[in-house]
Design a protein around this nucleic acid. Structure first.
Ligand SMILES: [Mn+2]
Ligand SMILES: [Mn+2]
Length: 353
DNA sequence: GCTATGC
DNA sequence: GCATAGCAACGCGTG
DNA sequence: CACGCG
C-alpha cells in the first residue's frame, strides 16, 4: 500500500502543557504493536478531548476540538468521527486511492449547514496529494484533493469532512471510469422496500449479461450498485450502457421505476439514476459516514442481504468495525479487475430490441 | 474549520 | 476583538 | 437557447 514504515503507530504528543494521563500511552509499546494490514486498526491512541498532535505516515497532524459534538443527540464527537476513520482506514483507503474528491463538510455538526469542497484550500499541508485538473471548456483548473493514506484521511476528518465523495475514475485514467454506478433514488424517502425490489431487478438484468454488480447502502435513503469496468471506455460510453440497464429495468416494472430527470414528473417512483456516470460527478464512498440520525455508513452488502427487512439505518459508524471484522471488505471485488464493457454492450443491445 | 475581510 | 463570508459548479438531457 | 437536475 503506502510503503511507509510507520504503519498505524501513532505517537500522542501533549499540547500546551496538558497534564499527562495514565492511559495516554496505551498500546505504544514496541512489543505489543498490532501490525498494519488489511484489518481493523485499534482505537486512535490519543485522548478524545481538546487538541492533540499525532504522528502518522511520518507527518505530524493536529487534531482540534476533539470533544466537539458532531452528532449531539447520539453523543458522538469529532473524536468519534476521526477515530472511526482511523480504525477502518485499511478498508476505505483502497476505495479512495487515486480518485479526486468532493468533500462534504459539516464544521458545526451533522444537523447544521454543510458545504462541498473540491478545491484544496491554500492552507492545505504540502504533504496532501493534489491533482490539478483542467476543466473541459473553460481553461480553468482545480487542484483536487486525493486521499491515498491515513494521514490525509484523518486530516480531512478533522475538517469535519463527514463524507468523502470520490470520482468514478482514478488516476491515471481520469477520463475512463473503472466503476459504473447505478444510483437508486427513491422519490419517497421512506420507500426502501421499493428500492430493494428495484435493486433485485437490476441484479436480474446484470445476471443476464453475466456481469457482477456490487450493492451498497448509500447511507441515506437509497442504494448504489457498482459495476467494476476496465478503464477502457469514456464516461459517455459507460453512461450509454448504464442507460441500457436502466431501460431494461424500467421495461419490466414501469410502475416502480422512472428515468425521468424532472423531479415533478417522477410520480413517486424510484429514480434509477444512471446519469451519475459523468466526469466529476460523485457518490458517497463506501464506508463513508453520512450526516444523518445515528451516523449511518454507506455499507457494502451481500446480494442475499438485499431483501425485505433490510434497513440502511442498521449500519452505523458504531457497528461498522465489527461488521468489517466479521465480513471483511465485501466491496473488494468492485475494485479488482473489471468487465469488458464492449462485450456487455453487444450482448445487451441484442436483447433490448 | 479555517482564513480573509472589514469594522 | 468581533462578525461576516466563502468554501462546487458543471455536464447532460429535455423542452 | 435556457432550464433543472444531482
Ligand atoms: Mn442516490
Ligand atoms: Mn442520484
Amino acid at each position: 500500500m503506502s510503503g511507509k514504515r510507520h504503519g498505524w503507530q501513532a505517537e500522542a504528543m501533549r499540547h500546551h502543557g496538558e497534564k499527562p494521563r495514565a492511559d495516554d500511552a496505551r498500546g505504544a509499546g514496541p512489543g505489543e504493536r498490532p501490525h498494519r494490514g488489511p484489518g481493523l486498526l485499534p482505537p486512535l491512541p490519543v485522548p478524545g478531548r481538546g487538541t492533540q498532535l499525532i504522528s502518522l505516515d511520518g507527518r505530524v497532524l493536529t487534531l482540534t476540538n476533539l470533544d466537539k459534538p458532531i452528532w449531539p443527540r447520539e453523543g458522538y464527537t469529532k473524536f468519534d468521527l476521526i477515530n472511526y476513520y482511523f480504525r477502518v482506514s485499511g478498508f476505505i483507503l483502497p476505495h479512495l486511492a487515486g480518485r479526486p474528491l468532493s468533500l462534504k463538510r459539516y464544521p458545526n455538526g451533522a444537523g447544521a449547514p454543510f458545504f462541498f469542497q473540491k478545491r484544496a484550500a491554500p492552507e492545505t499541508p504540502a504533504w496532501i496529494r493534489t491533482r490539478r485538473i483542467k476543466h473541459a471548456d473553460t481553461g480553468e483548473s482545480i487542484d483536487y484533493i486525493i486521499c491515498d493514506d491515513v494521514s490525509t484521511l484523518l486530516y480531512l476528518a478533522n475538517l469535519a469532512c463527514i463524507s468523502q465523495n470520490p470520482w468514478l475514475s482514478a488516476l491515471p485514467e481520469l477520463d475512463r471510469p473503472d466503476i459504473l454506478a447505478l444510483d437508486l433514488d427513491p422519490s419517497d424517502p421512506d420507500d426502501f422496500e421499493g428500492c430493494i425490489q428495484v435493486a433485485l431487478l437490476v441484479k436480474r438484468q446484470l445476471d443476464r449479461f453475466g456481469i457482477t454488480g456490487y450493492p451498497k447502502t448509500s447511507g441515506a435513503t437509497g442504494l448504489h450498485v457498482y459495476l467494476p469496468i476496465r478503464p477502457a471506455y469514456t464516461y459517455g460510453q459507460c453512461r450509454q450502457f448504464a442507460k441500457i440497464i436502466a431501460l431494461l429495468c424500467r421495461e419490466e416494472r414501469p410502475d416502480l421505476i422512472t428515468l425521468e430527470s424532472s423531479v415533478s414528473r417522477r410520480g413517486g417512483k424510484l429514480y434509477l439514476d444512471y446519469m451519475q456516470n459523468v466526469k466529476g460527478k460523485t457518490l458517497a464512498s463506501v464506508y463513508s459516514v453520512r450526516a444523518r440520525t445515528g451516523a449511518p455508513v454507506s455499507t457494502p452488502l451481500k446480494w442475499d442481504e438485499v431483501q425485505p427487512g433490510l434497513r440502511p439505518a442498521d449500519f452505523t459508524m458504531e457497528n461498522t468495525p465489527a461488521r468489517l471484522t466479521a465480513a471483511g471488505d465485501l466491496f473488494a471485488g468492485a475494485l479488482a479487475g473489471g468487465h469488458d464493457l464492449m462485450r456487455a454492450v453487444t450482448r445487451a443491445e441484442r436483447m433490448l430490441s
